[in-house]
């Protein structure tokens, strides 16, 4: 049976947090200092908390007996709707921070808008997660400023990461068919309405960090439609390993 748009919209919200949460979990025990290690894995935990809420709800909407775990563990990469930005690897600390920052600003704005969703459950999840996302954006903005306005080396690395990752933000600001439909039906957010605030906020922080705003064009990316880079397959291979090796195993 064809999945409903509401179901796919919930997945698209959850997939962003799941894939970024997984990338951050890879840093557990590998952060540059104990404090940043703890911070990044705390953020990962928040994101996975949010994912559970979305996937539990998605399972309820689908109503075919599947659980939150099935949704996380038994989908192939073509059925994931996360942004390409979030699959990008932990190249170095500047990349981790740039990826986080470019998503956090969007995440907060999108959750703010989602609190007004006509869908009671989506709005409740948004109210709850917004409080956490507000902390995340403070953390990542702080680090963008600290590294950008730091030493020559930290500035060069931060600028390099922003230059590489900023072009992926085009995807954030262009609604997918799922998002367009969701907005039309009242339970989704209006991506166009978020666009200006997003660009302004990102540029404000980058200016404060004394970083140059990249002028390179947005990259063509269709993660939200299910077309991904090969990075996602590696992530899912890791994440879904147990279920793929021992189908339906229970912990």
């Amino acid at each position: 049976m064809h999945d409903s748009n509401l179901y796919r919209y919930i997945l698209s919200l959850g997939d962003n947090s799941m894939i970024l949460g997984h990338r951050l979990s890879e840093l557990c025990g590998h952060g540059p200092t104990l404090e940043t290690d703890i911070a990044l894995t705390n953020i990962s935990l928040d994101l996975f908390g949010e994912v559970r809420n979305y996937f539990q709800y998605a399972a309820k909407v689908k109503a075919d007996g599947s659980t939150e775990d099935d949704i996380a563990h038994q989908r192939g990469s073509r059925a994931f709707y996360n942004l390409i930005l979030l699959e990008q690897p932990n190249t170095n600390f500047a990349y981790v921070i740039a990826r986080q920052f470019l998503f956090d600003v969007f995440h907060k704005l999108n959750l703010q808008a989602l609190t007004k969703s006509t869908d009671k459950q989506l709005s409740a999840i948004a109210v709850k997660s917004l409080k956490e996302a507000t902390y995340h954006v403070r953390f990542s903005s702080d680090w963008v400023k600290r590294l950008g306005d730091g030493t020559e080396e930290s500035r060069a690395k931060m600028q390099g990461a922003i230059d590489d990752l900023y072009p992926f933000t085009g995807e954030l600001l262009r609604p997918s068919k799922i998002e367009e439909e969701a907005y039309k039906e009242g339970y989704g957010t209006d991506i166009f309405a978020i666009k200006d605030s997003y660009v302004q906020e990102v540029q404000r922080i980058l200016a404060e960090a004394k970083l140059t705003i990249p002028t390179s064009p947005y990259r063509f990316a269709k993660g939200k439609e299910g077309f991904h880079t090969e990075y996602l397959d590696y992530i899912l291979q890791d994440f879904q390993y147990m279920q793929k090796t021992y189908p339906n195993m229970q912990w």
Binding site: E35, T36, I38, A39, N42, I43, L45, D46, E132, Y135, R138, F139, D142
Partner: peptide
């Protein structure tokens, strides 16, 4: 403040 994130999600160090 040492870190905005502490030993659990609810705490700062």
């Amino acid at each position: 403040l040492v870190s905005q994130f502490g030993s659990t999600a609810c705490k700062a160090l």
